[in-house]
Design a binder for these strands. Structure first.
Length: 674
DNA sequence: GTAGAACAGTTTTTT
DNA sequence: ACTGTTCTAC
């Protein structure tokens, strides 16, 4: 896309004045470019960069945007660039910074630590046990579900009953238990000086509601620009309203057709109702796609036309000609894998780097078979979405130790860290942490006689807390190296795949070099975790090429020359679990649309007719699938439909190692009785 | 109180 | 496959 030339729609958005502005930007219509120009326009018009707040979905998106602004302004080294001076990041990241700066004015100590999803779950789990909720006659929801419910209530600003009725009907019998659990949870977070994701937003809103502090924070900014507005929730909308009460200086950009985060409380209504909330608002629609070719756009337009409520807009493309998208019906998952791998390699032959190609899927495990095959064929790939680096047990262990040093009152971290010692379980951990909480420091541990099994490791832990628990602690890299040497033997003793894990730990230690202190490192890893192990290992080598595998959610905002959407069977897209209500089904449709609209030139949709149910222990029961309902005949008309020629299908892949053969013999034997 | 084995149930997607 | 729960042996 030309970054120096704006079309009339884009120009209108860029040059719009101070009144609230909603830019409805269809997929590939040059949204980032338009935003960058608008920021540059503001700066050129006299707005100081440090008085601009840029809220994006990922910090890297903000950084990229500001880098482009610098390019447009040609600020060489004359002065500090916009990218170093403006405020940019995610709502959660910006909330953290503002709360550390101003939180004290509303009684929030600046030393808080931040709980990620896993930590929040752990805390809920402990409290659930304390309240003896598991003892109830009917099975209590698992901790992850509890957190989902809690989060939904907070983010959607909705009472528990409503949330349970609408989204978690099977938990309705536990409403009372959940209420008491959530009350305890809120109290405990205050005592332990921890904030969870939702708290960051809620406390920022609280800060803005405070007459004194609110005015101070408001006065920091002249312009607030928000990207991916369709995926903001009620609390985020409140924050914006409190930052810019009249809406003046507020720009929001989004595409209601790409709203895919309602499961975490995002409200499409935010973008649909923006003009009503700010009557002075101007709405600008960007409709020229610079991404997809006309044939692809024809197809994606037809797909999204099935949505029930949206800003009507038909995207068009000047990129006429090109390949029509295709739907490939495969017999089984193996065939689907072969088709995708073949196409990927063909297109690489045509000169499309692997990095310009992406395989997209609804849920993380849908790529398992493909990953195996890519590994077998030595085709490099990176997977985005699904389980992440920081969620691996050994990383969480190490970070728990660091977090305990940073905030001795953090029970989730403390419990996890102490239970690493053999012979120490939840009870012992609890009494040790009680002692620390009472004393306000680690001193009481000096007089503790640890359980016999922990005797070997105890002095090491004691040395750690003595050295790093003090206010004046050593430089961060040294701290991490100390913690790592303490933890490594434990890791070796308790997990398999030890070398891989030890490598991860070393990588983590390297990351720490880039941060000034523990709090910043921990917040960063919690709020913006590295998306793959390779990401953490550092910037990719220049000529490194790898196929992208991604959940559709994680592919949001990206584009590729060639896109393969796999497992496009009804039940996967839409997910079986989401066909209950109209809004859920609509969101699945938008999700499918997001997947298809990532493509520039080539688009392949595949699905296996026959596929195996998950508990594939012995025989492997299979069921027959149908193409997603989002591709009815009138939509399919925009696609070519094929099934792979039998001859082109490779013979079944060889087993990875010789030892696998015995497994397949056993499987065959079992099939006799299945 | 802890650790490990045996057993039962199971709702994607992520800041 | 994974997580959570319960039971048993230290």
């Amino acid at each position: 896309m030309k970054s120096d030339v704006l079309n009339p729609e884009q120009r209108a958005a860029v040059e719009h004045g101070d009144d609230p502005l909603l830019i409805v930007a269809g997929a590939g219509t040059g949204k980032t470019n338009t935003l960058a120009h608008r920021v540059a326009h503001l700066i050129a018009g006299g707005t100081r960069p440090e008085r601009i707040l840029l809220l994006t979905f990922a910090r890297r998106a903000a950084a990229e945007l500001l880098r482009r602004v610098d390019g447009l302004l040609c600020v060489g080294n004359r002065e500090r660039s916009a990218s170093t001076r403006a405020w940019g990041g995610t709502f959660h990241g910006v909330a953290t910074r503002l709360l550390r700066l101003h939180g004290q004015q509303i009684g929030l100590a600046p030393g808080f630590t931040i709980h990620d999803r896993g930590d929040s779950e752990d805390l809920l789990d402990v409290l659930r046990a304390e309240l003896e909720l598991s003892r109830a006659d009917r099975r209590f929801p698992r901790k992850g579900t509890c957190l989902d419910i809690y989060s939904r209530c907070v983010n959607a600003q909705e009472p528990l009953e409503g949330v349970l009725d609408r989204a978690f009907p099977w938990c309705v019998p536990h409403a009372e238990g959940l209420k008491s659990l959530f009350r305890r949870y809120t109290e405990e977070k205050a005592v332990q000086l921890v904030l969870d994701y939702d708290d960051l937003l809620a406390f920022l809103r609280g800060l803005l509601d405070d007459p004194g502090a609110g005015a101070v924070v408001r006065a920091r900014f002249d312009a607030v620009l928000v990207d991916e507005y369709q995926d903001t929730n009620a609390v985020q909308a409140d924050i914006l309203e409190r930052l810019r009460p009249s809406g003046r200086g507020l720009t929001v950009v989004g595409d209601d057709a790409q709203a895919i985060y309602s499961f975490r409380g995002a409200a499409v209504r935010n973008i649909l109702d923006f003009p009503a909330r700010f009557p002075a608002a101007r709405v600008v629609k960007l409709t020229q796609s610079y991404r997809a070719t006309a044939p692809l756009l024809e197809a994606t337009n037809r797909v999204i036309a099935q949505a029930s409520e949206r800003y009507a807009k038909e995207l068009w493309s000047a990129r006429v000609g090109g390949e029509r998208p295709e739907i490939v019906t495969c017999l089984g998952e193996e065939e689907q894998t072969q088709v995708v791998v073949e196409r990927v390699l063909e297109r690489r032959e045509q000169g499309i780097d692997l990095r310009r190609q992406a395989v997209l899927f609804r849920t993380s495990h849908h790529s398992a078979a493909l990953e195996l095959e890519l590994g077998r064929r030595n085709i490099p790939f990176r997977k985005y979405g699904g389980l992440r680096f920081v969620e691996a047990a050994h990383i969480r262990d190490l970070l728990a130790l660091v977090r305990l040093l940073e905030n001795p009152r953090d029970r989730a971290a403390g419990t996890r860290a102490l239970c690493l010692l053999p012979g120490v379980g939840p009870r012992t951990a609890r009494s040790l942490l009680d002692a620390v909480a009472d004393a306000g420091g680690f001193e009481p541990w000096c007089n503790v006689r640890p359980p016999a099994a922990a005797a070997v490791l105890w002095p090491g832990l004691l040395a750690l807390v003595e050295e790093m628990g003090a206010p004046r602690n050593p430089p961060l890299p040294l701290q991490l190296s100390r913690v790592r040497s303490f933890y490594e033997p434990i890791c070796e003793a308790s997990y398999d795949h030890v070398d891989a894990r030890l490598r991860d730990l070393a990588a983590l230690e390297q990351v720490a070099v880039g941060f000034p202190d523990r709090a910043t490192l921990l917040a960063e890893l919690t709020l913006e975790p590295p998306r793959s192990t390779q990401d953490l290992a550092g910037p990719p080598v220049l000529d490194e090429d790898y196929l992208v595998l991604s959940t559709i959610h994680s592919a949001k905002g990206l584009e590729f020359d060639a896109v393969y959407v796999i497992h496009a069977a009804d039940g996967n897209i839409p997910s079986d679990l989401a066909v209950g209500r109209r809004e859920e089904l609509d969101e699945e449709l938008r999700l499918f649309y997001v997947a298809l609209s990532r493509a520039r030139d080539h688009l392949t949709v595949t699905f296996p007719l026959r596929w195996y149910e998950r508990p594939a222990g012995g025989g492997g029961r299979h069921s027959y699938a149908q193409l997603t309902r989002f591709l009815p005949p009138e939509v399919r008309a925009a696609f070519d439909e094929r099934s792979p020629a039998p001859a082109s299908v490779d013979p079944a892949p060889l087993p990875l190692e010789g030892s696998n053969a015995s497994a397949s013999v056993r499987r065959r034997l079992q099939e006799l009785f299945g």
